[in-house]
Amino acid sequence: MKQYIIKANDLQKTYPTKPPVKALQGFSLSVEHGEIVGILGPNGAGKTTFIRILLGILLPDAGEITVGDASPIASPKKVARQIRFVPELPFLNSNWTLWQNARYWFSVWEEAWAPGKVKDLLIRFRLIERADEPLSRYSRGMQQRAGLALALASTAPVIIMDEPTLGLDVLGVQETLDILENTKDQGRTILFASHDMHFVEKLADRVALVAKGRVLETSTAYDFRKKYGQEYVTLRYKLPAQNEIISEQLPVDASYSDERTWNRITKMGGTLIELRRDLQSLDMVVGHYLQQNAY
């Protein structure tokens, strides 16, 4: 039997603006213990509103939500002991050193000070050598990684991240990915919202596609690509009169067959180098899905 640590059912939230903004319209999502779930969706889909309700900072108009056995609506403090939140912008005090920030946040989180564990994380995030410098001397990406490192150093079973790769360079994204993938063994539950499809696909056990304030689909990234994405063939071949390798991408539809493609190249006297079938990338599939369904 599946054990859910996060359960949200039919959440509704309308911001009391003029005119009112319907942010959540029947948002339902469940996350199992130890699962990593990525929330995908266009801007204004309701991702951040859901995260704020989950954190107990915002109250829904209707619906139910629990984290473990506590409700963030009725017992936000109990929920806060189980969750560490890493926002999309660096949140640590830039006038302080990383060690000072760590000490402060552990006191705020009411956790026993664990310098050894913090040190291990800082080594893994390649931040230890500069941990005694004020964060104002760090790059934005380093500050973001520092925040994530402290959240991971805590003992909270759930990590919530909003756009964890925002502002990170390619190396920073890869390092973050490596470290978060390693946490899978620790049984930590991770829920994150991101526009970085590569990151989502690599990290998430399951993706939740969100639009217009509700969850449209939840599945693995691969199943989502397979269900809604088109299959295509990557073709690389060389013609006798030309030195260059020719690349083509062909959609796999009713009229396509490998044999016909092979015959076409052979008739031209060409040499086939590669013929590989693949699915459309997640960003293309999500983009098409949202366009077709007018989101």
Binding site: I57, K77, V108, D162
Partner: peptide, 21 residues
């Protein structure tokens, strides 16, 4: 007005008192 910054401080066991401190 910076919701990500306020959220990270409010999502703590002492919540509003974290900010008071």
């Amino acid at each position: 007005t910076n919701t990500s910054y306020s959220s990270v401080l409010l999502a703590t066991p002492t919540s509003i008192n974290t900010l008071l401190g």
